[in-house]
């Protein structure tokens, strides 16, 4: 191992070791690959490289996935517009515009007619939603919001929790009292009320708002655990030895103790990512989530709720499967990372 590359601020050899171990761990590498793939997907869709046309209504509404053969539904959907046109006179009233409209329609059949359903696809890879948009593309587009929200909010929350927990546990005394009081106030307010309050203060909708809301409310669990870890470690002899050696508070807190709490931080991070992807659903449901014109896995699951009654399950499948794969891969990855970062675990 190359121990001469030690830098004063951080311990690269720990990271070197971790990387070497990660590379050796096949399942860990697979999950890293999956997580990277999802991140690439969301970056791709954010920059417009893929899934740019996700909101085009390319198929008939509720087109089933292509692996299902349903030729009967196919004929139904095609004949529907004709019926609709005739229904106008159902109540026995004369439509004063119908003659004019019919004339216009006959004169310019290409322009005014709604896009001809016969040209739309009747089957899609993962089916279509109620406007005929591809579920597959929606899932890709939705990953943008969900991964952004899940990852960034979880990182924000974990960072806040770690820093505050480190301060409280390391210094103790009035710093601890103050931060604990802050923590108690935060946890005493009902969660949803807190979200309303923050949303009201921020006063705008969007992904940034959700990240802020989740990040600012989600740090409490991490805080508590990291505080306990620091309480435990600050009296350990290696920290006292560092003190005797003249190491600063900063150095003892973040260079000596922090690496020894990685296992807690990583587990909390992965729990938060899972939780926040789900929280975004609730926020969207409450109207604090993403705007209607933006798609997320949360909003897809929300739509799927109603569609399931009609037996339309592909939107649930799309969002659910993507979420399950990402979340599983992420937990496995953090688990592997935790082991890789612990020099005591024999690979």
């Amino acid at each position: 191992m190359n121990h001469t590359t030690t830098s004063p601020s951080f311990s690269p050899s720990l990271w070197n070791l971790a990387c070497a171990r990660l590379v050796r761990d096949k399942i860990g590498m697979l999950s890293l690959g999956i997580v990277l793939f999802f991140i690439l997907l969301s970056v791709g869709s954010f920059t417009g490289l893929i899934a740019q046309n996700w909101d085009e209504e390319i198929a008939v509404n509720y087109a089933p996935p292509s692996f299902l053969d349903t030729s009967k539904e196919h004929t139904d959907t095609v004949s529907r517009p004709v019926i609709a046109r005739q229904q106008i006179n159902l109540y026995g009233l004369h439509d004063p515009l119908s003659a004019v409209l019919n004339q216009i329609e006959l004169a310019h059949p290409q322009d005014t007619m709604p896009p001809n359903d016969e040209k739309k696809l009747t089957h899609l890879l993962l089916g279509a939603d109620k406007w005929g948009r591809s579920v597959a593309l929606k899932t890709i587009k939705g990953s943008e919001t969900s991964i952004m929200v899940g990852l960034i909010a979880a990182i924000v929350a974990t960072c806040i929790g770690t820093v505050l927990g480190a301060l409280a546990g390391y210094f103790g005394g009035w710093v601890d009292d103050l931060l604990n009081w802050f923590y108690n106030v935060f946890t005493a307010i009902p969660y949803l009320l807190l979200i309303f309050a923050i949303a009201a203060v921020l006063n705008q909708k969007g992904v940034t708002t959700i990240i802020l809301i989740l990040g600012l409310t989600g740090w409490t669990g991490v805080f508590r655990l990291i505080r306990a870890e620091y309480l435990k470690h600050r009296q350990r002899e290696y920290v006292l030895a560092a003190k005797a050696m003249g190491a600063s508070h900063y150095r003892r807190m973040f260079i000596h103790i922090l690496p020894n709490t990685f296992h807690v931080i990583l587990v909390q991070l992965s729990i938060n990512v899972v939780g926040f992807i789900k929280s975004e659903v609730i926020l969207s449901f409450l109207g604090f989530g993403v705007p209607v014109d933006v798609v997320s896995w949360g909003s897809m699951l929300n739509e799927a709720q109603n569609e399931l009654v009609l037996g339309i399950w592909w939107q649930l499948l799309g969002a659910g499967a993507a979420m399950a794969i990402l979340v599983t891969a992420f937990s496995v990855l953090t688990d592997t990372l935790r082991d890789a970062l612990d020099p005591k675990v024999v690979a």
Partner: peptide, 19 residues
């Protein structure tokens, strides 16, 4: 307990020199 388990021996002995 008196040696940080996440530091290599080199880092442990090097630290006072760095400081």
């Amino acid at each position: 307990a008196s040696l940080n388990p996440r530091f290599t021996i080199f880092q442990i002995i090097e630290e006072p020199l760095l400081l």
